[in-house]
Amino acid sequence: MPKPAWEDFRFDGIGTRWEISTPLPLSGTIRARLLSLVEKYDGEWSRFRPDSTVSAMAREPGRYELPAEAAVLGQLYRSLYGITAGAMTPLIGSSLERLGYDAAYSLQSAGSPVAPPRWDEALDWDGAVLTTSAPVVLDIGAAGKGQLVDLLAAELRSCGEDSFIVDASGDMLYCGSDPVSVALEHPYDPAKAIGTVQVSAGALCASAANRRVWGDGLHHVLDGTTGRPVTTAVATWTMAESTMVADALATALFFVPGAVLEQTFDFSWLTVFSDGSAAYSGGFEGTLFT
């Protein structure tokens, strides 16, 4: 991504690589606050850490109190669960584990795909309180990384930073005076781009079926009604004010057309399908190469 000669703060967190760019180097105090926020989020929501709250849910049912950000996350998931008729669900973790995308990264399928539990039968998500009737494997990966981007941006603003890029390996939020140009990665060749998009302010998120691939046709974007990998769309991009919303909608585009999502959400989008065709919103500020 072309950007001014800013200073970069790079680190690993929640299983991905982060890069926070600012005009001047961040102080040690600010860096420590950002890293603490990432650790706290991971400690609550990771299904790969045995000490997380989410891992506790997988061991036994009960009533679990999560941080305040759980409320808006639950509302977003509930809305998209309804719009996609259950295809997009935070309960998809059990289906991912079934196919080998588990805490040990075994990448060995345990059998045929199995759909996760239905929301109303297994989970009550009321604000920041989650109550489960049986052990469940919660996976908020479709929106959680975007939410953490937003939380880090809020922390930067509280520290007096007003120009920055928070880039979480494909999910980014830009705050600055001049637009930046971002390449759209080719879904079958990461070394190439299929186009570019101008980001003036706000979030740009991407999701691709080729990002986490293993076995024969297995990847991380599963249909919650069947537990099977999606085969129609291969890559999506979204632009919105909130990174959490953009992140979630990038996954939702694998299940429903962008025009359907536009009835509820204010965002722009691009979807590339497995047959090589593409669809996009009128407001998508990008250019596709021919």
Score class of each variant (00 low, 15 high):
Arg98Gln: 15
Leu99Asp: 04
Tyr101Thr: 02
Tyr101Ile: 03
Asp102Gln: 09
Ala103Gln: 12
Ala103Asp: 10
Ala103Pro: 08
Ser106Met: 09
Ser106Gln: 11
Leu107Pro: 02
Leu107Met: 13
Gln108Glu: 13
Gly111Ser: 11
Gly111Thr: 10
Pro113Phe: 03
Pro116Tyr: 04
Pro117Trp: 07
Arg118Ala: 11
Arg118Asn: 11
Trp119Val: 08
Asp120Ser: 14
Glu121Asp: 15
Glu121Tyr: 04
Glu121Val: 09
Glu121Leu: 12
Ala122Glu: 07
Asp124Ser: 11
Trp125Ser: 02
Trp125Cys: 06
Asp126Val: 12
Asp126Thr: 13
Asp126Phe: 09
Asp126Lys: 14
Asp126Gln: 14
Asp126Pro: 05
Asp126Glu: 13
Gly127Val: 12
Gly127Arg: 13
Ala128Tyr: 06
Ala128Leu: 09
Val129Arg: 11
Val129Thr: 15
Leu130Thr: 09
Leu130Asp: 05
Thr131Pro: 06
Thr131Asn: 08
Thr131Phe: 00
Ser133Thr: 13
Ser133Ile: 02
Ala134Lys: 13
Val136Trp: 11
Val137Trp: 14
Leu138Asn: 07
Leu138Ile: 15
Leu138Met: 14
Ile140His: 10
Gly141Ser: 09
Ala143Trp: 04
Gly144Arg: 07
Leu148His: 11
Val149Thr: 07
Val149Arg: 10
Ala153His: 00
Ala154Leu: 10
Glu155Leu: 07
Arg157Met: 12
Ser158Leu: 06
Cys159Asn: 14
Cys159Met: 02
Gly160Tyr: 05
Glu161Pro: 04
Asp162Gly: 00
Ser163Trp: 05
Ser163Gln: 14
Asp167Asn: 15
Asp167Met: 00
Asp167Gly: 03
Ala168Trp: 05
Gly170Met: 01
Gly170His: 04
Met172Arg: 15
Met172Ala: 06
Tyr174Val: 09
Tyr174Gln: 04
Cys175Lys: 10
Ser177Leu: 12
Ser177Asp: 15
Ser177Pro: 04
Pro179Gly: 08
Val180Pro: 03
Val182Cys: 02
His186Gly: 00
Pro187Ile: 01
Pro187Asn: 05
Pro187Thr: 07
Tyr188Gln: 14
Asp189Met: 04
Asp189Tyr: 02
Ala191Asn: 09
Ala191Phe: 10
Ala191Lys: 14
Lys192Phe: 03
Ile194Gln: 07
Ile194Leu: 14
Thr196Lys: 14
Thr196Phe: 13
Val197Thr: 10
Val197Phe: 04
Gln198Trp: 07
Gln198His: 12
Val199Glu: 06
Ser200Asp: 12
Ala201Tyr: 06
Gly202Tyr: 06
Leu204Tyr: 07
Leu204Glu: 02
Cys205Met: 03
Cys205Ile: 01
Ala206Ser: 15
Ser207Pro: 00
Ala209Ser: 14
Asn210Tyr: 12
Asn210Val: 07
Arg211Ala: 05
Arg212Met: 05
His219Phe: 02
His219Arg: 00
His219Asn: 03
His220Tyr: 03
Val221His: 00
Leu222Phe: 01
Leu222Tyr: 01
Leu222Ala: 00
Asp223Phe: 01
Asp223Tyr: 00
Gly224Lys: 04
